[in-house]
Write a protein that binds this DNA or RNA. Sequence first.
DNA 1: CGCACAGTTGAATCTAGTCAAGGAGAGTGG
DNA 2: CCACTCTCCTTGACTAGATTCAACTGTGCG
Lengths: 230, 230
Amino acid sequence: MASRPVLTVPEIPAVIRLSRLAPLGPDDLAIVVAAAAGARSVAPRQDLTAAWRAAAPVLILDGWAHRSALLADGRRQISEILLPGDVVVNDPIAEGRHLAVSTTTALTYCSLPSDRIAEQPALTTALKVARSLEQRLLRRQILRLGRMGALERVVDWLLELYERLGACGLASDGEMPLPLTQEIMADALGLTNVHVSRTMTLLRRDNLIIVQGGRATFLDPLRCRAIVER
Amino acid sequence: MASRPVLTVPEIPAVIRLSRLAPLGPDDLAIVVAAAAGARSVAPRQDLTAAWRAAAPVLILDGWAHRSALLADGRRQISEILLPGDVVVNDPIAEGRHLAVSTTTALTYCSLPSDRIAEQPALTTALKVARSLEQRLLRRQILRLGRMGALERVVDWLLELYERLGACGLASDGEMPLPLTQEIMADALGLTNVHVSRTMTLLRRDNLIIVQGGRATFLDPLRCRAIVER
DNA sequence: CGCACAGTTGAATCTAGTCAAGGAGAGTGG
DNA sequence: CCACTCTCCTTGACTAGATTCAACTGTGCG
C-alpha cells in the first residue's frame, strides 16, 4: 500500500536547494528538470575532472563528491565536499595542477545549459548565490584548519554538512546521512584517520554526536553549536 | 638629476596587475584611472568592513590588507592577504558574522563604478579572472593549513606572495616587501608567533629565505620551490 | 631615560602523528 | 556453511611537532 516513489519537481533535492537560493519560476524549473532528465551516473571513487571539464556547469543530483589537492608524497587535502544541489563550474583558472574532483559515493549529475540559464534571471541569481556560499565555506574551512582543535573541527564540519543537507531536504531532526570513511573525513579535516577515530569516540562518550552505519546523529545540538560558536 | 617620479598609467601597480588578467583597452584604462583619481587613504590596523560595504567593488591601489575571522576567545585566522591590484567585492552572502577586512599597512584604495565596468568586456573579464584566482588562493591556503608543516607553510606562502607581488611589478629578483609582523604571519599560517619566529630562524640558518627590515629575500628559490612543489 | 612593541630563546607541556596489532563486517569462492 | 580476504575502525605505546609560559633582547619613540 506504499505510495509510488515518484518525485514531483520540488521533491528533487537539488531543485529544492536551488529554489531556496532564489525563487525559481516555472521556466527556471523547466530548464533544470529538462537538464536532470539527461542525468548521468558515476561509480564511487572515480575522478570527475576530465568528464566535467567538458560538461560546463554541472549540477549534482544525488550522491557525494569532493574536491581535493594532492602532494607528491601522497598527502591529500579535501577542500570541499560536494552535495546534491551543488553546482560545479568548470573554471580552468581557479584550478591548479593538483586539484581534482572525485566521487565519494555513487553519484548522479547533469550538466546545465549555460546559454539558456543566462536568459533566466532567477536561475542566474541562484548560481551566483551558490558561488558566494561556496566562498563562505572555503573561508570557514580555513578557519577550522588554521585555528580549531580536532574536536572543534569535527563538530563544526558536521554541523556545516547538516545545514547544507538540510537546505536540500536531506537532513532533519538532528540526523543526517554521512556516507564517508574516516579516512575521507581525515583528509577533509586535516587530521589522520587514527585521530578522527579517537575524536569520534570522544564525541560518543560525551553524548554529543554518534556516527554509525553511514549516518550521524546530533545528541546534543545546542552543546555542539556552543563548542564552535554557530 | 633623478627623473621625476611620475607614474604613467601602466606604472600603477594595480593597473599593471589588472591588465595582465585581461588585455585592457584605452577605455578600460580610462575608467580605472578615473576611479583611482578618487583614491582614499586609511591608516594601518583599521577595520574596512563598514567603509567597503558601501563602496561596492574596491580596487586596492597601495598597501596591504587582510581578511580575517575571529573566534570568541581571541583566536584569529587570516584567510587572505590583499595586495595592490586585488579587487574586493562586497558580497554579504559570502561573509559570515565574524569575517572582517582590515588594513595591515597604510592603504590607499578606490571604488570602481560597477555600472561602467559592466559595459567593458575586457574589464569585466579581468574582474572575473581575479575572482577565480582568489578561489585558487583559498584552496591553496586550505592545502597549506591542512597538510603542510610549519616550514612548508611559510615557504609556500612567501612564494605565493612573491608571485602575486610580481604580477603587479612590486617584486623581482627574488626580493619583495613584507611589511608584516610575525603575529600577522602566524595568523595567516595557522601557527603561533613564537613558532613563526623559530621557523624564520631555521630558514635563515638553512640559507633559504631571509626576512629582515620589512623585506624578504629568497636566497635559494629553486630549493624553496622544491620544498613545496611549486 | 623609560616605555611599548617585535622578535628571540629556553623549558615544559600538549596535541596530533606514527607505527603496529587486533577486531568487526561484508563479500568471495570452495 | 566455512574459511579467506579486504576494508574500515579501534586501541595502545611511542614520537614528533607545535603551543604555552616566561624571560630577555633590541629598536624606535615620546
